[in-house]
Amino acid sequence: MSRIANVVSIAGVDPSGGAGVLADLKAFSALGAYGCGVIAALTAQNTQAVTGVHTPPIDFLRKQIDTLFADVRIDAVKLGMLGTAEIVRTVADRLAHFKAPFVVCDPVMVAKSGDHLLAREAVAMLREALLPQSFMITPNLPEAAVLLESGTPDSVKDMYRATERLREMLPTSGQRWVLLKGGHLPGGELVDLLFDGDRMIEMHARRIETKNTHGTGCTLSSAIAALLPQTAGDANGVEAAVRGARDYLLRAIAASGELDVGHGHGPVHHFHALWPQRPA
């Protein structure tokens, strides 16, 4: 697009900056988009654990969204941690009201530490109210299993069927995409599947051995949201946005050792291409 894209993250806040809205804003900025944020949850969190979650009053969440969209042209939306069924319903309602474009839904359910971030009763609401608003969903394998109420895919063949079933949960009209992330499969190669109901695209990459994987899902989905408006005029714009986002994330993971943040799963280096490179 000829003008700088405005992209909003509607998600939770991770004080350590590795995930959630703070990480999303870093990815937006690194990829040339102007970042906005709506806070759907506050967490007490570091690289090792989530010790508390606080959600804002629903009326205030609604006011955040309404006030932002009333003034700022929003070109894409990234959805992350929403927490409760009431939050999911409210976000879905406001996105429908404003006819939000390029909604990328990352169904955040469990933190890297293993702490649950989405109430069980919220999953049904996510299926019913939020997926119909989504241009793309980006679940990992455990999240796909929850959405499908099935076992976790444990092979690429299983991923194919899961991706097809996930696409069936999205509206049939217009462009709707599933990106199923295969990072939980064993082995040295990563395989993700991108599917629009017609074409299944396998995307491969080498696994990078590191413990610095905090916020990788948040970063990938926010990178896609940042790039979608910028590739919208291209014939293969969606595929280009996803490939660009994956390349950005893989480089951010590879450069994560330049950072020294916490004692658990450290963050990726969102500004690896912009900050001076540190000596190994």
Rank of each mutant, 00 (worst) to 15 (best):
G264P: 02
G215P: 01
E202F: 03
T210S: 06
R207C: 12
D247E: 05
Y248A: 05
L227N: 04
L194T: 10
F271W: 15
A226T: 03
T210V: 03
R246F: 03
E258R: 05
M200G: 13
H204C: 13
L228H: 14
D247N: 06
E258H: 02
G262Q: 04
I224P: 13
D260K: 13
G197W: 09
K211G: 15
T210P: 03
R199C: 11
H269I: 01
G257N: 09
A205Q: 07
G237M: 10
G257E: 10
D196Y: 14
V268I: 15
A245Q: 01
R246V: 00
G217D: 11
P276L: 12
T213N: 06
A241D: 04
T210H: 00
L228D: 09
P276Q: 11
I253N: 11
R243P: 03
Q230E: 06
D247H: 08
L249E: 04
L250G: 07
D234W: 06
H269V: 01
A254M: 06
A241L: 04
T216L: 11
H270I: 13
I201N: 13
A223Y: 07
D196G: 10
S221K: 05
V268E: 01
V261S: 07
G264R: 02
L228T: 12
G244S: 04
H204T: 15
S256V: 14
H272Y: 15
H204N: 12
L227W: 10
M200V: 10
S256I: 13
E239G: 00
A235I: 12
F271Y: 15
E258K: 03
R278K: 14
V261I: 13
L194K: 12
Q277E: 05
I208M: 08
D247V: 00
A255H: 08
S222D: 12
A241H: 08
I253Q: 13
E258V: 09
E202C: 04
A225C: 10
G266V: 00
M200D: 07
W275G: 00
E202D: 07
P267D: 10
L274Q: 14
G217Y: 12
C218F: 05
H265L: 02
V268C: 10
F195R: 13
Q277L: 04
N212V: 11
G262A: 08
M203G: 01
A235G: 06
F271D: 07
L259W: 13
Q230C: 12
R206M: 08
F271L: 14
L227S: 04
N236P: 01
R199T: 02
A225W: 12
G262N: 08
W275P: 00
P276D: 13
H204L: 15
A252W: 06
A235W: 09
G215F: 03
V238C: 11
H272P: 15
L250T: 05
G237I: 15
V268M: 05
